[in-house]
Design a protein around this nucleic acid. Structure first.
Length: 218
DNA sequence: AACTACAGCAACCGCCGTCTC
DNA sequence: AGAGACGGCGGTTGCTGTAGT
């Protein structure tokens, strides 16, 4: 199916939102709630496409949006989460209250990528860590540079089942939803020391499952 | 003062997964 | 079952402000 971009209608307003458009959208959503983005512009009396309205609300108008510079703590968290999750900005943003995926993505692309680039030159010959994830039986290999940030990973399929303890016991049914599984994962991350050992213990496989492993001996 | 280069960021694009009929 | 609609997401673009010459 070939679908036309919704904003390509010549009749639609594009580009920067005006204060008046912001006011209309904000008022409408406060009165009627989020959702039904496709029909929202018409109902609200906006000459914008639904996607544009949704984006404007989520990234700018939402009342819980945090304005201002990224703090050092937030920056540190972004770096560590990016090491684990890659460019999964929405997942990262969920762990930074008030920050949007777009904001974090922009911050990464403009500030952090440059800042961290030099770290790639600092790869040392330390042994890699092998973490096996039971669900996918996928082996993830991490390497580290001198500041202990994880900078490289290689994946390979592996049919060997290691003695790995999943976050839910085998007696329990598998996590019934992504939400449960993700919460388990984040609870685990939150309980761990975020020092170098952090990476010895935790890995993430393709479906966000997390597993413990015996701590590696260097 | 005028021009250029660059950085920052808001907004758009297109793909993909899920839902609905 | 499958086609279309919808919402969410990551990648990219392009506008704007600022620093440098």
């Amino acid at each position: 199916m070939v679908r036309q971009a919704c904003c390509r209608n010549g009749e639609m307003n594009r580009g920067t939102w005006t204060e008046e458009e912001d006011r209309i959208l904000k008022t409408y959503i406060q009165d009627h709630g989020e959702g039904k983005w496709k029909s929202l512009p018409k109902r609200a009396g906006l000459n914008r496409c639904g996607k544009s309205c949704r984006l404007r609300w989520l990234n700018y108008l939402r009342p819980d949006i945090k304005r201002g510079n990224i703090t050092p703590d937030e920056e540190d968290l972004i770096i560590r989460l990016h090491n684990l999750l890659g460019n999964r900005w929405s997942l990262i943003a969920r762990r930074l209250p008030g920050r949007t995926d777009n904001e974090i993505k922009n911050y990464w692309n403009t500030c952090l990528r440059k800042k961290l680039k030099h770290d790639h030159d600092l790869i040392e010959s330390k042994p890699s860590i092998i973490v096996r994830t039971k669900a996918t039986r996928c082996t993830t290999e991490f390497s580290f540079c001198s500041n202990n940030e994880c900078i490289k990973e290689n994946n390979a399929t592996d049919t060997t089942e290691e003695a790995i303890v999943p976050t839910t016991s085998s007696d329990e049914p598998a996590a019934s939803s992504d939400q449960t599984q993700e919460e388990n994962w984040w609870d685990l991350l939150g309980s761990l020391d975020t020092s170098f050992d952090f990476y010895n213990w935790v890995s993430i496989c393709g479906d966000n499952s997390v597993f413990y492993q015996e701590k590696c001996n260097w």
